Simulated assay, not measured.
Amino acid sequence: MPSLRAGVLERLAVTPAARPAPALGRMLTDVVGLLAQSLLVFAVAVLMGFRVSLPGALLILGVMVLLGLLVASFSYALALTLRDETAFSSLVNFVTLPLILLSGMLVPLSYAPAWMETAGAANPLRYAVDAVRALARGDLAAPDVPQAFLVLALLTALTVTWAARGFRRVVP
């Protein structure tokens, strides 16, 4: 992490801010950027004919926020654990493609071989994709929606805790 090498995190240690504050601040900055981009994509999609109810749109944005916070906190925690940009980028590149392929984002997993559908069940991204598809169809009562929120909320809580502890270890 460039902030770690440049001594930025050590300088934050002498401020009266709580130890998890730098981690949470960075994660929330990433989520706000993702939310702005999502709103822009929504606006363009609506202009092109996409129709979704207001509750459906808000739930889709909620899934996006949880997913963004999950990915941001996981990335920071992993970067603080590895402390090597080359190893971090290699690991992220190694993990990203299988996560996308096993999420059903590009092609629904119902068209995939049975082993791939089974492997996709362990992918948190799949829960988000299934929930967003249901919400975009207008199916607010689909079981995929609360399931996605539950899985994403639990994993987000774990990764945010991991990242906050990582910042505490780096900034004594």
Rank of each mutant, 00 (worst) to 15 (best):
Y127G: 03
A131V: 00
V145A: 06
I60A: 10
T86Y: 03
R137W: 06
V160T: 13
R11K: 09
V52T: 11
D139A: 15
W115D: 09
V145W: 11
P22Y: 11
R165N: 06
V171Q: 10
M64V: 13
G33C: 12
D139G: 07
L91I: 14
S103C: 02
S3C: 01
T15V: 06
A122K: 01
V171C: 02
V170G: 02
A114M: 08
G138S: 09
W115G: 06
Y76P: 00
P22Q: 11
L70E: 10
A79T: 04
S75C: 13
A87W: 11
L125I: 15
L78R: 02
S3D: 15
N93A: 15
P20T: 08
V160Q: 04
R137F: 05
N123V: 03
V41E: 02
V52M: 12
R19V: 14
G166M: 10
A119C: 13
P55I: 06
F42T: 05
Y111N: 08
L70H: 14
L152V: 07
A153S: 08
R133M: 05
A121V: 05
L154D: 09
M48V: 03
V151R: 00
P143L: 09
A17P: 04
A77R: 07
A141P: 01
L140G: 10
G120F: 01
R126Y: 09
L28I: 12
L4H: 09
T86D: 02
V92R: 10
L154H: 12
F74H: 02
A17H: 13
A122E: 00
P20V: 10
E85A: 12
V107N: 07
P2C: 11
S89Y: 13
G7Q: 09
V52R: 07
I100D: 06
P16C: 13
M27P: 00
F42A: 10
A136K: 04
F74V: 07
L69N: 10
F50D: 00
R83Y: 03
A79V: 06
Y111V: 11
V151E: 03
A43F: 11
V95I: 07
L39S: 04
L82Y: 11
L150E: 03
V65K: 00
T15R: 04
P146N: 10
M27T: 07
Q147P: 00
R133I: 05
P124D: 02
A36N: 01
L39M: 15
L82I: 15
A119P: 12
R5D: 15
R19D: 06
I100R: 01
R19I: 11
V41M: 14
A163R: 06
L4V: 14
